[in-house]
Design a protein around this nucleic acid. Structure first.
Lengths: 167, 167
DNA sequence: ACTAACATGTAATCTGTTACATGATTGA
DNA sequence: TCAATCATGTAACAGATTACATGTTAGT
């Protein structure tokens, strides 16, 4: 997320935090102890350049810039998105947010297709021994709701991806 | 999840792993280094009792039981579910899975109502400065899809919860 | 004068991942 | 006999949370 938002332009950490929190489900808090060390790591890896505002003490803004290496790394990560990045909805939504940064339309659609393949593999959350239980069989009202909600979500996303790929 | 599944009956760690992985999104792997130390912590807290199978070495099964303290703790956690447990879909789905364990229907519905309140608060993932951007305005196709999918998901879940509370 | 929001950082602690390590059981 | 699955654990490392710590700016 840091690299992705920095690809939209230079900015300081506090601004990043706001954007990350908004994207992260409009309540999810990202703490200082997560954000600033993460920025430091990205800087040590050469993905981000930090520039201190002149004349101020510790309170001054630090302008962050995405380096060429950082941009290349970001694109590599997006292009190669697979595994948990495809499986985990939260992670995939982050990938989606920045997927347009990939210059090649074919690469973008390849990511979408991997997500679609995952969504199309039949899944069951609950089992009776080894036999998967279908939503209609679930008697527990909350587990039933869980399955029905998950199914509606999946259907909506599949429809959208198919439409997107076909267009 | 460990306490929740143990509430369904005594079982050993490997069985728990299978159930946790199934519930956790049919791909999400839970590693040994996560599961066994977690069980140890629960045991140290007195929530879980471990009983080694007699006669075997390290390979023997350890039967795990939920203690009375553990059950009470589990119910307390479910009843008090709020914050991230309500906000984060993955966490909330775990709460939902075991919500029926709460003996009082009113407590169950109170949790559902907190989730509904959260889902009803208007949210935007992207901003133009301070102004929230509506899905229809979003030009980026993937961010647009993200917003439309999230909206469909939210609508399905809200409809289900309202129906459940009314019934 | 005070408060909220802006802005950045560190230290202690906890938890998760990865890789390593052992051994039993079951079926081809 | 070989591989897969069952079954449990540890050690090194990375990352997240919480709490602490500092200072500025803008509005009331």
């Amino acid at each position: 997320m840091v690299l992705g938002f920095l690809a939209e332009g230079r900015q300081h950490g506090y601004e990043l935090r706001r954007k990350i929190e908004q994207l992260h489900g409009h309540t999810r808090r990202i703490s200082d102890g997560t954000l600033y060390p993460a920025i430091d790591r990205l800087e040590r890896n050469g993905y981000v350049a930090k520039e201190a505002a002149p004349g101020r003490g510790r309170a001054g803004r630090h302008t962050l810039t995405l380096t060429d290496v950082g941009r290349r790394h970001l694109l590599d990560v997006l292009r190669a998105a697979d595994g948990h990045d495809i499986t985990d909805a939260t992670r995939f939504f982050v990938v989606l947010t920045f997927l347009s940064l990939l210059p090649d339309r074919a690469d973008q659609h390849a990511v979408l297709r991997r997500r679609l393949t995952f969504l199309e593999t039949p899944a069951s959350f609950f089992y009776d021994g080894n036999r998967p239980i279908r939503a209609e069989e679930v008697v527990d009202p909350y587990r039933r709701g869980l399955l029905l909600t998950a199914r509606a979500t999946s259907a909506a996303e599949k429809a959208w991806i198919r439409e997107e790929i076909d267009s």
